[in-house]
Design a binder for these strands. Structure first.
Lengths: 155, 155
DNA sequence: CTTGACTCTGTAGTCGAGTCCAGGGTTTAT
DNA sequence: ATAAACCCTGGACTCGACTACAGAGTCAAG
């Protein structure tokens, strides 16, 4: 696979992958990208396969892997072992988390929607903030854990 | 309302609210809590109503409000205006976000589950990472936005 | 040959929601 | 009276995934 124009400089890679020059260097530092060869003057020179790697990373990210997890997967792959066991593990965990998360969200959604609706017609009583928050009784999630949170993308 | 033991010191409040001394001071600094009166020696002295305020904050947080949003709501309330319009706004936004989020999650879940299942019986092919990530084609979310992310809770 | 776009390294800053610490002072129980 | 437990301030640190910047070198076009 791959066969497009090779010998990409970092800016090319950024443009083609949508990842951003700084992020690319950051990924390299974090062990997500192999360090590429260099021109005599020190410029990074990538082969087209880096684009696949980046797609891989993006995908994994989207699936909820943290960069650290992705790093481990890649490292294992490079160590010859198929990282499948690991990946499977992570995926299973993700699934469970996702389900939990979604259940939580559904609950919140219900609360929110109910509060909004009920309060939409009730008008507001001074002193109470719309009854919205002070009124609702929520079954507290015992541990509020991270979502597969990602920051604002520029795209 | 309220009528329990008044004149709480910060540690009491922490214990009764589950919020943590440092967080309480942090909330105060951030304008989420009014600054309480002090003893002569400078100790914070809270009235019981702070517990309600904290419950309010917790609830709002759980509903997906950021501290900044909560701060605004409280500020508006204090300014005499009912913050209902604002709250409603935020809630509506949250609902929309939540829905979008959940749709995304459902998609991911499907991908993950499918990948896991399909791959569970296929065995692994070297070179491909389980087909999991390199294989799946995901309809990319056009902008990857923050979830109502919250860090690891200590509870 | 000069201008401007690109690249390099290394360090620092961002955001959110806190946590942790040092280096004090105070209150309470023994 | 003294130790333990509490409280104070101010600032630094955490985590994750980047982004920004300074200051310097390099490359391609005109």
């Amino acid at each position: 696979m791959a066969g497009a124009g090779r010998a990409l400089k970092i800016g090319e890679v950024a443009k083609q992958s949508g990842v951003g020059v700084e992020a690319l260097r950051f990924y390299e530092k974090s062990g997500l990208l192999d360090r590429p060869s260099r021109t005599e003057s020190g410029y990074r020179v990538y082969g087209a396969e880096v684009l696949e790697r980046l797609a891989f990373i993006r995908r994994a990210q989207v699936l909820g892997f943290s960069l650290e997890e992705i790093r481990r997967v890649i490292a294992e792959r490079r160590a010859g072992q198929s990282p499948c066991a690991e990946v499977r593990e992570v995926v299973r965990r993700r699934l469970a988390e996702l389900d939990e998360r979604m259940a939580e969200m559904r609950r919140y959604r219900k609360e929110l929607a109910a509060a909004l609706a009920g309060w939409d017609e009730a008008g507001d009583v001074a002193g109470h903030v719309c009854g919205l928050i002070e009124g609702t009784t929520i079954t507290e999630p015992k541990s509020t854990r991270r979502l597969a949170g990602r920051q604002k993308g520029k795209s």
